[in-house]
Structure formats: structure tokens, C-alpha cells
Design a protein around this nucleic acid. Structure first.
Length: 875
RNA sequence: GGUUUCAUAGCUCAGCUGGUUCAGAGCACCUGCCUUACAAGCAGGGGGUCCUAGGUUCGAAUCCUAGUGGGACCA
């Protein structure tokens, strides 16, 4: 006996194993087939599956499974990226637990620990994807730190350097004093805080008097190079050309003039600290001020500060405020709202810091990437992101690609003792270059020191669509030629700039071609309150728990029920519940059909018609689904399939052909039903791979290595609109009868007598058996006159009567009929008005006008029928 | 602050090229049913100023302008 409810657990494990054993997801170049490829957005190797991954990877799996069934050579490449800062932070934390400090290790020792860590935790997320049903070609799993991908990064660096696109420069960067590395702007998060504004007086040198500045960072006064005032500020004209003395420290600095200073913020006097503020740095450049950097890499004050040396920046702030106050230099402290930049990874407050970093010049290299998105060679879904994309690309800044970390691709730059830089793929090549190009033949490898920094993780993931096919190292290999450009990329809008745009840039730079044709941007998964789901908030369910509770198919469909491209998904477990219920519905349809006994009895006419009707509905839906997919309306396509299966197949079709209890079904109908069921399973398979496989396997005899994974995706056949129309009218009739039964509080078991007054008897005669089954009619007869004392209603131009002796409430019937008449008269009036409007008839499309005429005719016949009905009721 | 995007039922969202009296789906809600596949179900029902004000048009939820309110990106 089959279980009454669908139990996914065993089924999922069984089929996933079967798919892997038979290598259904493996792909290799096949010239006879059209390639279809997707590269996974490589999850962070330290990561575990979260709701965003679930959404993102479900969509990719839907796309790839559909393509595979459509006979394309479908290849979904999985993998992970090394996430240098996040992983390094975790490794450092792990070492700390073991009592080991990073600074006590050599680079190689540290990397050995990192690899150990990666081997232990690195594969978790990919295993989790298997639970979701992801049909990746697992043999192709790549990792951004594996030798060939590592080498690709090194090679691209060297080539870009040789092209003059990479340079080394001093810049004010976002410094993470905890991670001790520079961060890109994208890795920095602005946080609103309640800050304090300290008013501090500086004495003027050589005379009485002082000025007061306002600052939120009093500990940086030791790094001041000047005080700046606006030349138009009349309050301070007496200070022009003066010098002031830094409190406590006593160092003298000039008063400079610049219109940059806002007169109404603070006191209008701005202390200028070029080493510790980006704006001040630029002001310093303009006025040729000295740069005094008083902070070390960890955010502690160094000897240049003179005071508070060795103290943490926040401790120094507390102390200097106290000392300033005691010295009488602190005028007041004000609260004010400000933003502080923090590190996305460590949470530390960012320190603007001048440092020597490697940069990639972006202006020229990014041109094709801008053009080809704007001209739709690469399409973004939804297209609203084009605007954001273009504004970013038009104002693109040079990319700081160095990070002061060990976990990552070490920058292939080698320094001679005099500081000369040589960029080469290896130390040996660098030596060779030095010897030949600089004529330094006595040099040995010991004289070369490699740059200790690594490259930004994005500098390896921007190559991902190429490097997973070894297209950098071996640009003419079979895989890259066959699978590249890939077809679709599915990712989050958050990384549109620092990943998607850069992949496009890399695509044109290294292959002269786009990396993918379509970019589908998913939304952010939020909770019911609209908050982004995150570990720290604890508002995210564990995806694996959800799968255990509702089944992978239930979770997949649940997530996709309401996730239009680019819009956030307000996640609610209700959705997943709905997904599970859908699985259960399908399961029970299977249970019903499975229990049928097919025999050689003749096929009733009604069954044949039902089959024809359903096939038309099916074909119509297949057409809809295809249209939705072309536009990446993944959610709408699912909803079409859902409605087809639940309402039309289960709710109507199966009810129409269902034999009476313990009665056999005719073979022709049975076989047609099996064939329909198979098609439905194929249609739904990309969304719900497990249950569809289970049913597909059970419903017919299958060969040893067959799978729905590789079955043919249904193609649309003919749509018979005549039959669809007839059935629609019939369903309306059935609903009306049920409505009466409900209104009269009659049991569904009570059979009702139905009389029909129609000009087109034939339309209903062929469907009598179905009407009887669906509406539970006792008798169906055709009349040419009203049935007195019966409840009546109108469908199209036909009148129907249910004769329930004594049950009729004439007043209510009359009121109903009048209301309906009124509506139809109004409808008629507006349609007539439309048709009487010459400009409408002249301007609207002809088929539209024709449709209006038809509507008018329908309304008129209905009005006639209603009027007759009202007349007879009024008697 | 600049740019951009969105606003439709209690909630989440469809509504595609302006054209059915167009206002729709799912969930939630109400009523009645444990009917022999399914109560994770079946039958039926109520519910909306399509943000506001103008405009274009024969015709506007849909196009334009302004306003209001939310989001995103940049500063």
C-alpha cells in the first residue's frame, strides 16, 4: 500500500544516488548538440548553505535541467572561491584557539594550516547543494586556489602589467586594522552612529588669541599639518597668514585658506590631517602640506605621534580628551549623528590610510563591458539594473587589487634590493628578466624578494567563466571552445559591480567575447518583516532543516512561488508548506491512477472529449511556459504548471474520467492518462526533480539507465479553442449548480434534476455524462419552455433550471436576476458606446473591434434570456 | 544630498504592446463537507479610492508631469 502522504526523505536520497551513479549530469563537448552552460557563482569556501544560495541555485538547476531535457548539452560547473579575507580570518581564529599566533608562523606554515582548514570545511556547501537536488557536473568542480586557476590569475596579472594596465601607487585606502589589510570600497559598510564632536582651541603663535576647531577624532591632532578656514569667512580674516600651536604637543602649523571648508559646520575652522582623512589628504596635496602618519597597521599610535605612543586609537582618544580638558583646551563636546565605515569581514572601524598598493587601470579596459550591456548583447534581467550598471561603469575607478594577506594568489612582483620591481610568472623568470633586461648577471634568486601581498579574491573570480574551462592557460582547448560563452548567469544584484561587471570586462579582455548572454539577478531573501536574513539576526531558517521537514521539492517550489527576478523574496515558511502540499497533491494523483484497473471495455465518448480538452489545456500551458522562460519569468512558469496540474488535471480531468468505485477504466483512457501524466511530470521536473522522477519511474516500465533527467521536454501540440470554449461553458454550468447546492445547504450527495433550454442541444448532450459526474445531477432534460417554480440561471444564451419543489425563493431569485440584468445592460451600453465612437472604430485594431461586436451580441442574447426569466418569475 | 526604482485585496505579488465591465493569483479569512486519491483535501463565498493631484488619449492600473511614501546604488 502506498503512503497516503508523500514522504520525500528516502525517495530523494535514492534518486540523487541513482543520478550520480549514472552520471546524468556529466557533460562533454558534443558537436551534434547545442551547448548550454552555466557556471555557479562560486560560494565562499568557508560558507554554509543559506537561503540566498537556495534560491539562487534552485533557479540555476531549473534552467539547466530544462535545457538538458530539451536535448542541449547542458553543463553546470560547480566550485568554490577561496575568499581570502574571510577564510584567513577564520584560520587565524582557529590558530588562536590552539594558542598559535599568525605572526609566529612562516607564510608556508600558515598556508599549510589554511589548506588543512579548507580540506576540512571547504566541501560542506557543495554537499549541501546535492541535498537540494542540484544537477551540477561534479567531476568539473573547481576551486580558485587550485594550481591551474592559481596560475591563470598569476598569468593575467603579468600580462596586464606588461600591457601597462597595472601600476603601483600610493593611495588613501580603507584600512582594516584588525584584518591588517586594505579593503575595497565594496567591502566597507557604512554604519550610522551617535558620534561626539569635540571643540578644541589652538593658540595663535606670537600673539594673544586662539581659534577653535571641531573634530570627531581628537586623537589625530598630533597628525595635523594645518588649520583651514574659508577665505570668505569674515569671522576669521584676522587669522590669515597666522600660525597656530597644536595643544599639548606645541608643534606649530599654518592657517591656510580654502573654499572647501563649510562655514556653517562646526566652527568653520577645520583641522587638516592628510594622513588620516581622504578629503584632508587631497587638501594636503593641493596646499603641499606634510603628511604625518601617526598610526601603525594595527591602529596603535606610533612614535610620530609623540604623545600616547603605543596606545590604541580609541584609548588615545579617551586619554587626550581628558588631558585637553585639564589643560583648558576643550571648549565643549557635542553629540551628532555621523556614519562610520566598518569592515564587512571583521567589523573593525576602517582607518583611512596611505599605503602603497597595486592598482588595475579600469577606464579603457571596461569600455567593451559598458557598451555590450547597454546595447543588450548581454541582457540583464530585470533590465532596470542597466541604469545602475552604466552609472557605475561610467564612473569606474581604478581597482585596488592588492590585499595584505597570505591566503590567496601571491602577487608575482619581485623586488631587487634597490627597490626595482620585476613582474614575472615565477622567481626564476624574474631573475632571468633581471639578468637580461637589466644586465645584472651576477644576481641570484636570493637577491629577489617577492611582494608579500596577495591579490583580491575578485581578481581570481573575475576569470571564473573562463578559468573553470582552463581557458586562460589553454585558450584553444575543446571545453572552452564549446562551452564559452556560457549562457546564463544567476546571481545577486549586490555583486553586480564587483563580480558581474568584472567578469564581463575579463571576458572581452581575454576572449574578446562576452562571458554569458543573460544575467538573471535574484532578489535578497528577507524575513516576513522585510529584514535581510542573516546569521547574526538569527532570523533565517536552516535550509537543511527545511529540506528535512518539507522535502527538497517542496522547498524548491516554495521558494520560487513568489520570486520575480530582481525583487526581494519575503520568505515565509507558508510558501514552503504550499510547495510541500503541491507535492502531496501530485503524489495523490499518482495514487489514484496507480490503483486503476484498465480493461478492454469501450471508451466512453465523454472520456475521449475529456482527453481532447486536457491535451489542449496542456498545449496551451506549454506555450505559456515557454514564453515565460524566454523572459526569465521563472515564477510565472511554475505557477502555470502548478495551476495546470492542480486545477485542470487533478481538479477537473481526473474527476471527469475517474471510474466509479472499484469499477475498471477503459484501456484507451488509461493509456492516454498515463501519457498525460508523464508529460506533466516532465514539465514539472526542472522545478521538482525528485517526486517527478519517482512517479515517472513508477508509471511505466523503464530501462535500467533511464531517467526523467534525460527525458524529452514536452513540446506544444495543437490547441483546440472550440473544445476549450465548450468545456469552459460547461464548467461555469457546474459551478452554478454547486453554488445552488451550497446556497440551499444541500448535501453533495443529493442529486439534482437539471433542465436545459437551449438552441444548441448538441453542445450539452455530448457532455451530459461529465455534467452528471461533476455536478451530481439526477436527470438532464431539454425543455422548450420555462420550468415553473424552479431555480433558474443563465449561462451564455442558455437557460437552466433546477426544480426543487417548494425550495424556490422567488424574491431572491428575482433580485439576483435583476442584478445580473443590470450588469449586462451596463455592459451592453458601454460596448455600444464604444462601437458608436467613430474614432474607436477608426483607430483600434480591426480584431479588437470585431471582438467588441461579438461581446455585444453575446450580451444581447444573455439579456434576452434574463428578461424572459424575470418575466416568468414575476408572474 | 545625487541617481535610480517601486507603490494594485489583510499579506506576498501578477497584470507583458494602453483595448473584455479589468481589476487578477496564491496565502490568510468566512460557510459547508472526514464524498472511496488527497483535511497537506473538496465545494462555495466575502474582500480593492490600482498612493495623491493633474495631463495625453476615443479609451489609462498601464504613458507623461508634479507631489507623498518606501527600497537600492552612489556621495
Amino acid at each position: 500500500m502506498i503512503s497516503k502522504t508523500y514522504a520525500p526523505q528516502d525517495i530523494e536520497a535514492k534518486w540523487y544516488q541513482y543520478w550520480l551513479e549514472n552520471k546524468f549530469f556529466a557533460s562533454k563537448p558534443n558537436p551534434d548538440k547545442e551547448p548550454y552552460s552555466i557556471v555557479i557563482p562560486p560560494p565562499n569556501v568557508t560558507g554554509v548553505l543559506h537561503m540566498g544560495h537556495m534560491l539562487n541555485n534552485t533557479i540555476q538547476d531549473v534552467l539547466i535541467r530544462k535545457a538538458r531535457m530539451e536535448g542541449k548539452e547542458a553543463c553546470w560547473v560547480p566550485g568554490t572561491d577561496h575568499a581570502s579575507i574571510a577564510t584567513e580570518a577564520k584560520v587565524v581564529a582557529m590558530l588562536k584557539e590552539r594558542g598559535i599566533e599568525k605572526k609566529d608562523l612562516t607564510r608556508d606554515e600558515f598556508l599549510a594550516y589554511a589548506m588543512e582548514w579548507k580540506d576540512k570545511y571547504g566541501g560542506i556547501i557543495l554537499e549541501q547543494l546535492k541535498k537540494l537536488g542540484a544537477s551540477c557536473d561534479w567531476d568539473r568542480t573547481r576551486f580558485t586556489m587550485e594550481p591551474s586557476l592559481y596560475q591563470a590569475v598569476i598569468d593575467t596579472f603579468v600580462r596586464l602589467y606588461e600591457k601597462g594596465k597595472i601600476y603601483r601607487g600610493v593611495r588613501m585606502v580603507n584600512w582594516d586594522p584588525q584584518g591588517k589589510t586594505a579593503l575595497s570600497d565594496e567591502e566597507v559598510i557604512d554604519k550610522d552612529i551617535q558620534a561626539k564632536l569635540y571643540y578644541i582651541t589652538y593658540n595663535v603663535v606670537g600673539e594673544e588669541g586662539s581659534l577653535t576647531i571641531a573634530t570627531s577624532r581628537p586623537e589625530t591632532i598630533m597628525a595635523d599639518s594645518a588649520v583651514c578656514i574659508n577665505p570668505n569667512d569674515e569671522r576669521y580674516t584676522h587669522l590669515h597668514d597666522k600660525t597656530v600651536k597644536i595643544p599639548l604637543l606645541g608643534r606649530e602649523i599654518p592657517v591656510i585658506l580654502d573654499e572647501y571648508v563649510t562655514m556653517d559646520f562646526g566652527t568653520g575652522c577645520l583641522k587638516v590631517t592628510p594622513a588620516h582623512d581622504l578629503n584632508d589628504y587631497e587638501l594636503g596635496l593641493k596646499h603641499k602640506l606634510p603628511v604625518i602618519d601617526i598610526l601603525d597597521d594595527a591602529g596603535f599610535l606610533n612614535e610620530k605621534a609623540v604623545l600616547y605612543v603605543g596606545q590604541d586609537r580609541f584609548a588615545a582618544r579617551r586619554n587626550i580628551v581628558k588631558d585637553l580638558e585639564e589643560a583648558g583646551h576643550l571648549v565643549k563636546v557635542e553629540e551628532y549623528k555621523s556614519i562610520v565605515k566598518t569592515s564587512e569581514r571583521t567589523g573593525a572601524v576602517i582607518e583611512p590610510k596611505l599605503s602603497l598598493q597595486w592598482f588595475l587601470e579600469m577606464k579603457e579596459i571596461s569600455q567593451p563591458a559598458l557598451e555590450n550591456v547597454m546595447n543588450d548583447n548581454i541582457k540583464l534581467y530585470p533590465p532596470k539594473f542597466k541604469n545602475m550598471y552604466s552609472s557605475w561603469m561610467e564612473n569606474v575607478r581604478d581597482w585596488c587589487i592588492s590585499r595584505q594577506l597570505w591566503w590567496g594568489q601571491q602577487i608575482p612582483a619581485y623586488y631587487l634590493q634597490d627597490g626595482t620591481v620585476i613582474v614575472a610568472k615565477s622567481k626564476r623568470e624574474a631573475l632571468h628578466k633581471a639578468q637580461h633586461e637589466l644586465q645584472l648577471f651576477a644576481l641570484t634568486e636570493e637577491d629577489l624578494t617577492q611582494d608579500p601581498d596577495v591579490l583580491d579574491t575578485w581578481f581570481s573570480s573575475w576569470l571564473w567563466p573562463i578559468s573553470v574551462f582552463d581557458g586562460i592557460e589553454n585558450p584553444d582547448n575543446e571545453d572552452i571552445k564549446y562551452y564559452y560563452p556560457t549562457n546564463d548567469l544567476v546571481t545577486a544584484p549586490e555583486i553586480l559591480f564587483f563580480w558581474v561587471a568584472r567578469m564581463i570586462i575579463a571576458g572581452y579582455e581575454w576572449r574578446g567575447e562576452l562571458p554569458f548572454r543573460n544575467v538573471y539577478l535574484t532578489g535578497i531573501v528577507r524575513d516576513k518583516l522585510g529584514r535581510k536574513m542573516s546569521k547574526s539576526l538569527g532570523n533565517s531558517p536552516d535550509p537543511l532543516d527545511l529540506i528535512a521537514k518539507y522535502g527538497a521539492d517542496g522547498v524548491r517550489t516554495g521558494m520560487l512561488f513568489s520570486s520575480p527576478a530582481g525583487n526581494d523574496l519575503m520568505f515565509d515558511e507558508k510558501l514552503v508548506e504550499q510547495g510541500r502540499n503541491f507535492c502531496n497533491k501530485v503524489w495523490n494523483a499518482y495514487r489514484l491512477v496507480e490503483g486503476w484497473n484498465a480493461t478492454e471495455i469501450s471508451q466512453p465518448q465523454e472520456n475521449l472529449l475529456s482527453i481532447q480538452w486536457f491535451e489542449s489545456r496542456l498545449n496551451q500551458t506549454i506555450i505559456d511556459v515557454q514564453e515565460h522562460f524566454v523572459k526569465f519569468r521563472i515564477s510565472d512558469a511554475l505557477l502555470s504548471i502548478y495551476n495546470l496540474i492542480w486545477d485542470d488535471f487533478c481538479g477537473k480531468y481526473l474527476e471527469m474520467i475517474k471510474p466509479a468505485y472499484e469499477q475498471p477504466i477503459d484501456k484507451a483512457t488509461f493509456e492516454a492518462t498515463i501519457s498525460i501524466f508523464e508529460k506533466l511530470m516532465c514539465l514539472a521536473h526542472p522545478y521538482m526533480p525528485f517526486i517527478t522522477e519517482e512517479i515517472w519511474q513508477a508509471i511505466s516500465e523503464r530501462g535500467a539507465n533511464e531517467s526523467i533527467c534525460r527525458a524529452e521536454y514536452p513540446l506544444a501540440g495543437e490547441v483546440n479553442t472550440q473544445i476549450l470554449g465548450d468545456f469552459d461553458a460547461m464548467f461555469t454550468l457546474v459551478t452554478k449548480i454547486r453554488e445552488i447546492r451550497n446556497a440551499k445547504q444541500l448535501s453533495p450527495k443529493t442529486a439534482l434534476p437539471l433542465s436545459i433550454k437551449t438552441e444548441e442541444k448538441a453542445r450539452y448532450q455530448t457532455l451530459e455524462g461529465i455534467i452528471q459526474k461533476l455536478a451530481n445531477t439526477e436527470t438532464i432534460e431539454y425543455v422548450s419552455d420555462k420550468v415553473n417554480g424552479a431555480i433558474s440561471f443563465v449561462v451564455k444564451a442558455d437557460e437552466f433550471f433546477i426544480n426543487l419543489a417548494g425550495e424556490i425563493d422567488v424574491e431572491a431569485e428575482l433580485a439576483n436576476a435583476k442584478k445580473e440584468l443590470e450588469y449586462n445592460l451596463g455592459f451592453k451600453k458601454s460596448t455600444e458606446a464604444k462601437l458608436a465612437n467613430e474614432r474607436f472604430v477608426a483607430n483600434a485594431k480591426p480584431e479588437l473591434v470585431e471582438r467588441e461586436r461579438q461581446k455585444l451580441a453575446d450580451a444581447e442574447s444573455k439579456i434576452k434570456a434574463l428578461e424572459e426569466m424575470i418575466e416568468s418569475l414575476s408572474k
